[in-house]
């Protein structure tokens, strides 16, 4: 069974604490999930490291977490940092 999580708005240091809480609460449910990133307007290092930790945490719990529908902002960061959206760092 797969769940869907939609993350939207800013994913930056200014709101990092709230976004962290959302991600963690979602992981607690313990189901595999597609994370929809199409609504992310802004992604900075704080946001990026939140996503990376969430994915690693999920893997440790045996859950697959995949990032979907990246917005322009998310896409650009992943390309620049040479990271794959749906897997470990290249």
């Amino acid at each position: 069974m797969k769940d869907a999580l939609i993350i939207d708005g800013e994913l930056t240091v200014a709101v990092a604490a709230e976004q962290q809480a959302r991600l963690r609460a979602f992981l607690e449910r313990g189901t595999a999930a597609d994370v929809d990133l199409s609504g992310v307007t802004e992604l900075d290092t704080a946001g990026l490291q939140l996503l990376l930790v969430a994915r690693r945490e999920a893997a440790q719990r045996g859950i697959t977490l995949t990032f979907h529908n990246p917005s322009r902002a998310v896409h650009d960061v992943f390309v620049m940092a040479h990271l794959d959206l749906d897997g470990a760092p290249r």
Partner: peptide, 20 residues
């Protein structure tokens, strides 16, 4: 190459601290 070795466990992570 993004250096993620300093990233802590989810519980210990301070969302405003830079780890990367």
């Amino acid at each position: 190459t993004t250096l993620t070795d300093a990233l802590p466990d989810a519980e210990q992570m301070d969302p405003e601290t830079c780890y990367l």
